[in-house]
Simulated assay, not measured.
Amino acid sequence: MYQRILLAVDGSQSSDLALSQAIAVAKATGAEVKALFVADDSDAFFDVAYFDAKALMQGILTFGNKVLAEAASRLDAAGVRHVTQLIEKPVAPGQISSTIVAQADTWNADLIVLGTHGRRGVRRLLMGSVSEGVVGKTNRPVLLIRSEVEG
């Protein structure tokens, strides 16, 4: 059934829950998991008036490598075959969902697994939804794992 699972991780609670589900599916099907972190600094332009772009990106990359190392450790402990990949730039600024779909296509994933933060209302409109973008841009099966609603 599923032989290649693309798992998008971002270090959030919902991402951690998605990792648990990807492990369960991979163990049940013998699938390989590709854990993917997409580094994107485009949101920073809306958060602060001045920042050191180079230092910000280095912090994002360091965080991404940490998230991927933690995912790899859990996948190892579960005995799941896996690879990890850090994408330093999305296909276009703010286009994390398009980048995830492009990676799923390139890697020929059978399933995409990712967490969703449960944002609603104005927060969802302003921040967008990576998970909604992935679902709308792919014809591959997508397993969304929802954490508690953030409000």
Rank of each mutant, 00 (worst) to 15 (best):
A78Q: 15
T99L: 08
P90H: 14
T84M: 00
F63S: 10
S97N: 14
A44D: 03
V101I: 06
L19W: 05
A31G: 11
A24E: 15
T29K: 14
Q95L: 08
A35L: 02
H82C: 02
G118S: 05
E132T: 09
V135L: 09
A72I: 00
V91T: 14
Y50F: 10
R123N: 05
S131I: 02
R119V: 01
A31C: 11
I100D: 02
F37W: 01
K137W: 00
E32M: 06
S97D: 13
A78D: 10
A72T: 05
A104G: 15
E132P: 06
K137N: 12
T99M: 08
L19C: 08
V25L: 14
D40Q: 04
G118V: 01
G118Y: 06
D76Y: 06
P141R: 09
L114T: 00
A28T: 14
T29M: 09
L36C: 02
Q21W: 10
A102Q: 11
R140I: 05
R146G: 08
S42A: 10
T84W: 01
Q95A: 15
N139H: 06
D52E: 13
W107H: 14
K27Q: 15
I60Y: 07
A44T: 10
Q21Y: 15
S15T: 06
G79H: 13
S14M: 02
S12Q: 09
R123E: 03
L19S: 07
R140L: 12
H117Y: 01
G115D: 04
L111E: 09
A18T: 00
D41Q: 11
S14A: 15
S98D: 15
A39V: 07
V122W: 01
T29Q: 13
L86Y: 05
L68V: 02
I145Q: 13
D43I: 06
F46M: 11
S147A: 14
Y2C: 07
L61H: 07
V80F: 06
I60E: 09
S129N: 12
G115W: 02
I96G: 00
G79S: 10
S12W: 02
K89Q: 13
R146F: 02
E150Q: 12
V67W: 01
G136W: 00
A22H: 05
H82G: 01
A55Y: 04
A31D: 11
L114M: 14
T84H: 03
A78P: 13
L143Y: 10
F46R: 15
R4G: 03
A28E: 11
W107R: 10
L36V: 04
G11A: 01
A39Y: 04
L75N: 12
D16A: 12
E150F: 03
T99A: 12
L125E: 09
D40S: 02
G94P: 01
L86K: 07
L17N: 12
L7C: 08
V25C: 09
F37D: 00
I96R: 04
L114W: 00
I112D: 11
L68T: 04
E70A: 14
Y2H: 10
